[in-house]
Design a binder for these strands. Structure first.
Length: 502
RNA sequence: GGCGACAUGGCCAAGUGGUAAGGCAAGGGUUUGCAAAACCCUCAUUCGUCGGUUCGAAUCCGACUGUCGCCUCCA
């Protein structure tokens, strides 16, 4: 895409509750802030989904020719961090740093283009203090015994994002012991330091920022007033984003704080939301021990970003099989070398249509499942062309690159190298050694995995040549038990790891 | 209790007024020594239930049922 004719993207805005055309504040440029996390534990699969969702959204904007200024954050000081640090016997700073590092590594594993800016709360204390001072001076906030609270009732539009009224919020609201609020709905902008807690000097004495204020302060600092997109997972709508709007609009007097609000659906486990209080969290590392990152990404984006997604091993497996179909077709295109026949497919006009369908899908509220549908459609046609030998070498090469391009737009990393093995390499090697011993093949400790498999494939080949099909089929079946699938072609036997459920 | 979201074939999942994409699974066929992969065919007269609006609804309205969520920390 070129910059002259930027694709119009329609997106679902949580605040309006409807799909609207995206019109950036600055032409051709997207200013996007996505709430990151509190680095106090290992990332779970829900964190991963949100990160992948906004990664894809960023990639779609880039694909359509927009410049993207993407900012995210770490809330690296708060009650949970302090509590966890005491638990682990380290400083809150070290604790946050440790989990930030782990999270950043996860992003890399998942092939997520990191946000251009990753703001940390502890680096923005002065901005936060300045914001709180202004809120007090404008009458939206008040100091109370070293704490500072935002007066929710002073901000009339409160509740506009989460669609609730102050009246209904009052039901069930209460003041926790130790809080010095005037009104149960008020929330802390600044918290006075308790003994032993990390703290910063402020006009109200030593203390630290409350939750919510940091995202308003940092997004305004890096993206300015009325930036384009504020995102996060759905559980942040209330109170986090509601409070952000209140603070930011009260502070700056600029409305809207953010032009569009995008929220990612959460990951459920047995249809129930993963939640710290329930304790049913599924770590990202556990999912990645089961499947390749590309499979996890496929699993995430085969559902619309805003829908709930139920994590289930069976569903992961389905994702793997679907992705494998695409990968095998791409590999087939690469290997394809027929005599240079003329194109009989009318591929040009079809390309035009498919590209258009793909683009329209992504432009319509980032509809990745539909875009995948377009790719699947291409997969089917391409396989038929290959079968019917109606593709020239050049065409095969062309489609090979087109398929790869599409997959890259969706953020897959070297999709051809996606590993569908279900066992670790050590496990497979150990089991292959057993097999080789069983079939009286010499095991060389220096042998690679590939060489070991080929040794068994060669034995099977010999059996087949001698028409000993019982034995040759047995070897094939034994390899199949290790998720190694053999395919006999005219050029010989190939193998691949496939996620076949036994 | 208050508020809200969702309910599409065995499973996953698009589609938000014009007559049900796609994937996984399954069955039949081509191919194969047999497989695998691939291709062809089959697989929801129907979109939780009951009403209503409309020439026309999975899509709009109402009621009901079910599931989940928010009102407490959460991506």
């Amino acid at each position: 895409m070129n910059n002259e004719a930027l694709k119009t993207i329609r997106l679902y805005d949580t605040l309006l509750g409807e799909k609207v055309p995206f019109e950036p504040r600055d032409p051709g440029k997207v200013n996007m802030y996505v709430c990151g996390l509190t680095p106090s534990n290992y990332p779970h699969i829900g964190h991963a989904r949100t990160a992948v969702v906004f990664d894809v959204i960023q990639r779609i904007f880039l694909y359509f020719g927009y410049k993207v200024n993407y900012c995210s954050n770490f809330t690296d000081i708060d009650d949970k961090i302090i509590a966890k640090a005491n638990e682990e016997g380290c400083s809150p700073k070290d604790l946050a740093q440790k989990y930030i590092q782990i999270y950043l590594e996860s992003l890399e594993t998942l092939n997520i283009k990191p946000p251009g800016c990753f703001a940390k709360v502890t680096d923005h204390i002065s901005e936060i203090i300045e914001m709180v001072e202004v809120l007090i001076s404008k009458g939206f906030a008040y100091e109370s015994g070293g704490d500072v609270y935002f007066s929710v009732r002073s901000f009339k539009p409160y509740g506009k994002l989460s669609k609730r009224s102050i009246k209904e919020l009052l039901v069930g609201a209460r003041i926790e012991p130790g809080e010095k609020k005037r009104d149960p709905l008020d929330f802390a902008l600044w918290k006075a330091a308790k003994p032993g807690e990390p703290s910063w000097e402020s006009p109200w004495g030593k203390g630290r920022p409350g939750w919510h204020i940091e995202c308003s302060a940092m997004s305004l600092k890096y993206l300015g007033g009325s930036f384009d997109i504020h995102g996060g997972a759905q559980d942040l709508i209330f109170p986090h984003h509601e409070n952000e709007i209140a603070q930011a609009e009260a502070y700056s007097g600029i409305e809207p704080f953010s032009k569009y609000w995008i929220h990612a659906g959460w990951v459920t486990l047995n249809k129930e939301k993963m939640s710290k209080s329930i304790g049913n969290v599924f770590k990202l590392s556990e999912a990645l021990s089961l499947v390749h990152p590309n499979v996890l990404r496929y699993f995430f984006i085969s559902t619309l970003y805003s829908s709930p997604l139920d994590y289930d091993v069976k569903n992961l497996h389905q994702a793997a099989k679907s992705l494998e179909r695409i990968v095998l077709t791409i590999k087939r295109l690469f290997d394809y070398s027929s005599s240079a026949q003329k194109v009989k497919t009318g591929a040009d006009s079809i390309l035009e249509k498919w590209r258009n369908d793909f683009d329209e899908a992504l432009a319509d509220n980032f509809n990745t499942p539909q875009a995948i549908g377009v790719i699947m459609h291409a997969v089917k046609e391409i396989n038929r062309w290959i079968k019917e030998l109606t593709l020239s070498k050049e065409d095969a090469n062309f489609w090979y690159h087109q398929m790869n391009t599409w997959m890259e737009i969706l953020g897959f990393n070297e999709v051809e190298n996606t590993n569908f093995a279900l066992f670790s390499e050590e496990e497979i090697v150990a089991k292959l050694k057993d097999l080789m011993n069983k079939h009286k093949i010499d095991v060389d400790e220096q042998q690679s995995l590939d060489e070991m498999i080929k040794a068994l494939v060669n034995l099977r080949k010999k059996c087949r040549e001698e028409k000993q099909f019982v034995l040759s089929d047995q070897i094939r079946n034994e390899l199949f038990q290790l998720n190694i699938v053999l395919e006999d072609t005219k050029e010989g036997t190939t193998y691949r790891f496939s996620e076949e459920l036994q």
